[in-house]
Structures are given as structure tokens and as C-alpha cells.
């Protein structure tokens, strides 16, 4: 019978990366249990994940081309592509401890972009200003609906609108009069309600700030998971960094798409 400790560690590996010491312990336990299917928990987790993945996802064309190029380079033994950095450990433990070679520049670049834009980088770089991008999206026929302010103190004088393009999976929030925030005190967080999803599970649109003194603020909307059919945008007031689960106690503004 498989020990609870081994199952605990296998569960941990299937759901979160174990710490070095736990990984070493797991490797040691697995070496002593050649009868154990080391990947069974991972497969179970993968099956559960498959069950709830959104429907009809397709690779963006540009990304697909990149993947084909990567594959061609890999199969032609390009050392950059074929480095051990991309090996995923499955099955029995390797003779030596795992050594992670990540792409640290990615984190640096992402942090830099975040610092510059104050928001997520877009799907494609644009030389247009945010108002120009917003206007262009409206010209393309994106949906546009005004904010409805609640009685939350942050929204006493709030107005503006949200522009959303279902096809592009992007949009822009425009705010006037929404209370400026000190990011270390609180932040605003966007939630997108999707008709194709259970309403209990709105898509997290990320956190953003309203700088003091700005008459008008435009915030890009680029959700990190697909939105099938956006029906409601809601902005809540949350702790710095945003929340995993919003208690919805402080809803600042909402916009319902017709």
C-alpha cells in the first residue's frame, strides 16, 4: 500500500511545486517504491483540468507559426531550443536532483513592462496612445456602455464607460471622477462576467490604480483567460495586489452590456 506521505508528496507535485527538501524526499521515497505509478496523481489532476477548460480554444496564428519554427529548430538540434531547460520530469526521479533553468529575463521583462505601463502588456505592441487605441476599437464596432456608479465612497462622482471587443478579446475602461487610490492602501480590481461561465466565477480582469489629479483615466482591459460572452463588468475595491476571492463588499461601478 502506498504511504500517505508518498501520496501527499505526489499530490503536492501534481498541484504545486514541492520545495527542494520535499522533492528530495519524494525522489527518495519513489526510489524505494518501484511499484508506484509516479505520474498517476498528475494524470488525475490533468483530467480534472481538462474537464473545465474553456471550449473552442485555438492557437493564435502568429504563435502557431512561432511554435512551428521552434519545432523545426528543435528537430534540427538547435542548442538553444534543445537545452535541458525544457525537460519536464515525469515518472521516476532522475539520478540527480532537479535543477530548474528558467528564463529569468522573462520575469524581468514582464516586471519592466508592468512598471512602464502599470498594466498588462498587450497582445501586440501598439504605437497608438490609449485614447487612440480606444477610438480605433470603437470604430471597429466594439460594444460601449456607460458605468453605473454604486453608493460606494470611491464612486461618488464616478462616470465613464467601458469599451469591449469580443472578437479582439480586449477593451478599455474610461473613468472620470473615480476616487484616486494609494496603491499601498487599496486597489481597484476588474471582474468580467461571462455568459458562457457560471456567474459565480467571473473572470479576473486584474488590478489597477487611479492616479490623483487625472480628469480622465483610460485603463486597457486584456483578460488573461478567454471571455466567451461578456455581459457585465464590475470594479471592486480590494486590498493591494487584488484578491483571489472577492467578497464583493465594495463594488465601485458596474457596466452591463446589452
Amino acid at each position: 500500500m502506498t504511504s500517505d506521505r508518498l501520496n501527499d508528496l505526489l499530490t503536492q507535485r501534481a498541484t504545486e511545486a514541492p520545495a527542494e527538501t520535499e522533492q528530495s524526499e519524494l525522489d527518495e521515497l519513489l526510489r524505494g517504491r518501484p511499484d508506484v505509478d509516479a505520474d498517476a496523481f498528475d494524470r488525475a489532476a490533468a483530467a480534472v483540468h481538462l474537464a473545465v477548460l474553456p471550449r473552442g480554444e485555438f492557437l493564435p496564428a502568429a504563435l502557431r507559426k512561432t511554435l512551428e519554427d521552434d519545432a523545426a529548430r528543435y528537430f534540427n538540434s538547435d542548442p538553444d531550443v534543445a537545452s535541458d531547460a525544457n525537460v519536464v520530469q515525469l515518472g521516476r526521479p532522475a539520478p540527480t536532483a532537479r535543477t530548474a533553468h528558467y528564463w529569468p529575463w522573462l520575469a524581468t521583462a514582464a516586471a519592466l513592462l508592468l512598471a512602464i505601463t502599470g498594466w498588462w502588456p498587450g497582445f501586440e505592441p501598439s504605437t497608438l496612445t490609449l485614447p487612440e487605441q480606444r477610438a480605433a476599437l470603437i470604430e471597429q464596432g466594439a460594444s460601449r456602455v456607460g458605468w453605473t456608479a454604486t453608493d460606494d465612497p470611491s464612486a461618488t462622482n464616478a462616470s465613464g464607460d467601458v469599451v469591449w471587443s469580443q472578437n479582439n478579446q480586449e477593451g478599455f475602461m474610461l473613468f472620470r471622477g473615480l476616487l484616486s487610490n494609494e496603491p499601498s492602501s487599496f486597489q481597484y480590481q476588474l471582474w468580467i462576467f461571462d455568459a458562457d461561465r457560471d456567474e459565480r466565477f467571473p473572470v479576473d480582469g486584474g488590478v489597477f490604480d487611479i492616479q490623483p489629479g487625472a480628469d480622465e483615466v483610460i485603463i486597457p482591459v486584456r483578460p488573461n483567460i478567454p471571455v466567451g460572452q461578456a455581459v457585465l463588468f464590475a470594479v471592486t475595491v480590494e486590498v493591494p495586489g487584488g484578491v483571489v476571492v472577492s467578497d464583493r463588499e465594495r463594488i465601485a461601478v458596474v457596466a452591463e452590456l446589452g
Binding site: L53, E57, P60, A110, W120, R222, N224, I225, P226
Partner: peptide, 11 residues
């Protein structure tokens, strides 16, 4: 792509 998007901060 779906798995990657759902666990990434941005595109």
C-alpha cells in the same frame, strides 16, 4: 494555449 492563458498574467 488554454492552460497557459489561464495560468498567465498576460498574453
Amino acid at each position: 494555449w488554454s492552460v497557459a492563458r489561464s495560468w498567465s498574467d498576460n498574453a
